[in-house]
Design a protein around this nucleic acid. Structure first.
Lengths: 119, 119
DNA sequence: TGGTATAGTATTAAAAAAGATACTGTTTCG
DNA sequence: CGAAACAGTATCTTTTTTAATACTATACCA
């Protein structure tokens, strides 16, 4: 990728939290609890195992998520947010709030239109 | 898309500002100036006309960007941030800051490694 | 008269991301 | 003994996104 120095900062930030599933994965881990692989799967019922693995590995790579493997059978692997990963908390929070407001806004303008149409 | 109600808020927010080029487009428009199509192109030297058009149309659709066409030849079309679009400013700002810090962090740990290796 | 600027569209190709499905080995539970 | 739980891999297909390229019409300028 050729990099526009300006774009770069955004891209770096977004690369870390984008991907269809990363925001919700992070949402859950940012609650502070340690979660096992299948616990996360249950929280994200529509994700495939493959996608969950891929996204978790990327988050681990960036030191946003910590992965701890217990050498036992059946296997046990725990995922948790790192201290560094916590620094994403304000972004996710702001994003979440904006999303809520945006949905409300759309809802409102939809209702307004329906009202006019049926007037 | 099946929607997890939780994921939904994030997705809505991210849909509005993600896409390879949207953050920088918004960065420029958030400076407050009105920009013509080709002015934006010059600010984003690597974007194709098609991508610029597509992303601007999406931003227009969400009422984040305003598009004004002057019926004259050669054509003149002006783009500017809407007041609603301004509500994205804190997100972009937080994101930008995080990106800067993330790059610095990576740089630091890289330097540390190099130091150890050559010790 | 030919070149440049304007703001795009159309078409095709390539690359990236996501999804579907089947499979692994071991243990514990019924 | 058979089935389920664990945490994944491997392979293939589909979908989505981005890129490359050529093309449009008109006006202005030299």
């Amino acid at each position: 990728m050729k990099k526009n120095p300006l774009q770069c900062q955004f891209v770096v930030a977004l690369d870390s939290i984008v991907g269809k599933w990363k925001p919700i994965i992070l949402y859950h881990l940012l609650q502070g609890k340690t979660l096992r692989f299948n616990e996360l799967r249950r929280l994200l019922p529509d994700i495939t195992q493959r996608m969950l693995t891929l996204h978790l590995r990327e988050l681990e790579e960036e030191e946003i998520v910590k992965r701890v493997v217990y050498p036992q059978i059946p296997p046990k692997v725990e995922y948790s947010i790192t201290e560094y990963g916590m620094s994403l908390s304000p972004i996710l929070e702001t994003l979440h709030q904006w999303g809520v407001a945006h949905v409300e806004r759309k809802q409102l303008s939809k209702e307004k239109n329906e009202h006019i149409e049926t007037d």
